[in-house]
């Protein structure tokens, strides 16, 4: 696991910055909850007048005055978008950065198979995504307890699991893309994450294209559906897993034969 440890060391600073930023946003959002809860009536009325914008964020089905509803909308967006951007940028550059930084020649002139390089780098991506989500979860629970609210364990657990799966799926797809490019990848990763996010918003607003929610990983992270059903949509998750598997398989197949520039 030399390359795995090496990758964790290389990405340490970026992981700390992203984890600190997301955790801070989560904590600030939760610490604002008591103030928001005291103005529940005005806020719910405001949301009811925002039409499709409310639906786009799933705020039409949730009560913003409860910690569960508030956390689902506010913290869901922070973790959903922030975590996805981190995992996309990380994974999209994971293989290509060796060529961009001209270190591929150093690495691949050692007796290390390409499959091992891909495997250990992929593990490093997943480990960082899991660690970021674990930190975010701990900060969320601590912050909810700090503002004197009871922790909605089941909902928080389901939402955390959904966002972890979302980030893992986006990371897997971007990792596959990384094998095909030889420069950067961060911009491409951001593009994929943002596209998935906005596709979900379109799916929320427009009934004729509701099927999009089966394509974008944000489809199974719809907090209002998770809270109301008390579970995750297995079909959407399986479709997401298929996309993730395709991304990983593409990375292994392409990188095995790739000409290193």
């Amino acid at each position: 696991m030399i390359l795995f440890r090496h990758e964790l060391r290389r990405c340490r600073t970026a992981w700390i910055v992203w984890t600190a930023a997301i955790s801070c946003f989560l904590a600030i959002s939760i610490f604002l909850f008591p103030e928001i809860a005291s103005q529940t009536d005005q806020i719910n009325e405001m949301f009811s007048q925002m039409g499709s914008f409310t639906a786009a964020f799933g705020m039409d089905k949730l009560n913003f005055g409860t910690m569960t509803g508030y956390y689902t909308v506010e913290c869901g967006n922070v973790l959903g978008l922030g975590g996805a951007l981190f995992s996309a940028m990380l994974a999209a550059a994971m293989l290509s950065k060796e060529e961009k930084e001209r270190t591929a020649e150093f690495l691949l002139a050692h007796p290390v198979s390409r499959a091992r390089v891909v495997s250990e780098k992929l593990l490093a991506v997943y480990a960082q995504v899991v660690a970021l989500n674990a930190a975010a979860c701990v900060v969320s629970v601590g912050s909810i307890a700090a503002v004197g609210e009871s922790v909605p364990w089941k909902e928080l657990g389901l939402l955390s699991l959904a966002y972890l799966l979302l980030q893992a799926e986006i990371a897997s797809v971007c990792f596959g893309v990384s094998a095909f490019i030889s420069k950067g990848g961060a911009g491409l990763g951001i593009g994929i994450a943002v596209l998935a996010y906005f596709l979900n918003m379109i799916g929320n607003i427009a009934d004729p294209v509701k099927f999009i929610k089966y394509v974008t990983p944000y489809g199974y992270c719809d907090g209002s559906e998770i809270v109301s059903s008390g579970g995750l949509d297995a079909v959407k998750i399986l479709i997401g897993a298929a996309f993730a598997a395709a991304g990983v398989a593409a990375a292994f197949i392409k990188y095995r034969k790739k000409d290193i520039s």
Binding site: H6, R10, T103, E105, F106, A109, P111, V112
Partner: peptide, 19 residues
């Protein structure tokens, strides 16, 4: 390839290392 690289020391023309 892997068996070859176990017994080969290679010095590239442009040496780049991890910053």
């Amino acid at each position: 390839n892997r068996a070859i690289l176990e017994n080969v020391g290679y010095m590239p023309s442009e040496a780049a290392f991890y910053p």
